[in-house]
Write a protein that binds this DNA or RNA. Structure first.
Length: 442
DNA sequence: AATACGAGCAACCGCGTACTC
DNA sequence: TGAGTACGCGGTTGCTCGTAT
């Protein structure tokens, strides 16, 4: 394990960046992209280490950054995501386009923790403080591996915390499911995508692996936040929306990772920390992926409306900037249900991608798009699916993000009902508990 | 007006891991 | 295969600014 070589270099400036430095860095990256960060200081003439340049760009200079205070919706989302992801700030940030992990981390440490405590909620476990106090009295049974040094308390309990998103490290037996989950070919294979995904014992990881997709090699300068879709966890709503009218729409997410195809996606309502494990332990589902994501940036272009809701399509770019076209270069956002907020979807498109791919607006050929069919999924008892499910979901979603376009057309995901009921039962209990705890919005 | 204190934020540090040779 | 390198992440530090005393 090496240390960033630039850390050892002398005569490097530290501390706050001057406007001149900012300008140099901004100009350079705008023109050339950052390329290798370690060479950026030399090329720009900055007396900074590459690491510092990178940080400055990511946290401050990136043009897609959203400025200003966090909205209530954003705060709620952060809390919800934290309940599921723990202190994985980058993954949380990936769900909030325009926000950086650092920003979110700061917000959490300075504000949100406090707010939660004021409401009697333990910010570490997201359980009522009284419950946490009780737990403290019990002998410790928590997985120590889940605790990361002194800050482990910030991590969720084992049950709450999804395992590290490393397919290779799954404790699962060999994947019995037809869908290829290797990082390089998980989704990009059109043939595999055309077949149903069937799972009998998916872990959360497997859910994540199956439904989210951002491939490491597809975009070179791609931060997680560069290619990500929204992931509204209405089910874990700390506000007034708690209820079993779980929004099936909200359960799928995709959190592409920067380097290892870590993919986050959720296929279900049960994202409540304390129930995720149990719920993910058994359900069977079938998915026919068919989702398109579109936006107004080079890789995610705005698409047509369906039923009055904006449709989105995702594009994929290869390393050299060319648009991925089909089977070999993977599809970034396919297989991801889309609940992208059309207004806030200012993907942190990698600068070079932005610069280099003005011509690339739509991804692969239409025929190669994978599709997720969700209607069956929406109609499962687990999700309280029914003909008005879409309506309900939409309304729930609108409460949170009125401007959001969300579609779940042509779905065909199925859960095995008994398992879904089982999960639903657990889910209901936890929702009751959470409803008490979070009776009002923060 | 001066000082103390706390909150918020930007940046740094150290570690883990992917990548390259 | 192992060492070196680069990147990304999360925790921590320290500075700035606003407010209270």
């Amino acid at each position: 394990m090496g240390r960033h070589s630039c850390c050892y270099k002398q005569k490097l400036r530290k501390g706050l960046w001057s406007p001149e430095e900012d300008e140099k860095l901004l100009n350079y990256i705008t023109k050339h992209g950052h390329g290798c960060w370690s060479s950026v200081p030399k090329l720009t003439g900055l007396q900074r280490c590459g690491k510092s340049c990178r940080l400055r760009w990511i946290n401050y200079l990136r043009p897609d950054l959203k400025r200003g205070a966090f909205s209530q919706q954003e705060e709620n989302l952060i809390i919800e995501l934290h309940a599921v992801l723990g202190n994985r700030w980058s993954q949380i940030a990936a769900q909030l386009p325009g926000r950086t992990d650092n920003e979110i981390k700061n917000l959490w440490n300075s504000c949100l923790k406090k707010k939660l405590r004021q409401r009697g909620i333990d910010p570490n476990t997201h359980k009522p403080l009284s419950e946490v106090e009780n737990d403290k009295d019990k002998p410790p049974t928590a997985d120590k591996n889940n605790q990361k040094g002194s800050v482990g308390s910030n991590e969720l309990s084992l049950a709450a915390e999804p395992p590290k998103l490393k397919p290779s490290s799954l404790s699962m037996p060999a994947d019995p499911y037809p869908l290829e989950v290797s990082s390089s070919s998980r989704i990009n294979n059109s043939s595999s995508s055309s077949s149903n995904l069937t799972s009998t014992t998916p872990t959360q990881d497997l859910f994540l692996d199956r439904f989210g997709t951002c491939h490491d090699n597809s975009i070179t300068n791609c931060r997680p936040s560069d290619m990500v879709g929204y992931f509204p966890f209405q089910q874990l709503n700390y506000g007034a929306n708690i209820g079993l009218s779980a929004n099936p729409n909200s359960s799928l997410c995709f959190i592409p990772s920067s380097s290892s195809s870590q993919v986050m996606s959720e296929l279900t309502p049960p994202v409540l920390p304390s129930v995720t494990s149990s719920i993910f332990s058994t359900p069977t589902y079938t998915v026919k992926p068919t989702v398109s994501l579109q936006s107004n940036n080079p890789s995610i272009s705005s698409g047509h409306d369906i039923d009055g809701v904006h449709n989105w399509e995702a594009s994929t770019f290869s390393n050299n900037g060319s648009k991925s076209n089909g089977s070999n270069n993977s599809i970034q956002l396919q297989n991801s249900i889309n609940f992208l907020d059309s207004n806030t979807l200012t993907w942190g498109l990698a600068e070079s991608v932005k610069a280099d791919h003005k011509d690339n607006h739509v991804l692969q050929g239409q025929g190669e798009q994978e599709e997720i069919k969700w209607s069956e999924y929406l109609n499962t008892p687990f999700l309280l699916g029914n003909p008005v499910q879409n309506q309900a979901s939409q309304s729930i979603y609108n409460e949170v993000k009125p401007e959001t376009g969300f579609i779940t057309d042509e779905s065909s995901t199925t859960w095995h009902h008994s398992q879904a009921f089982q999960a639903s039962d657990i889910y209901t209990k936890d929702l009751q508990r959470f409803s008490v705890a979070f009776g009002q919005t923060l």
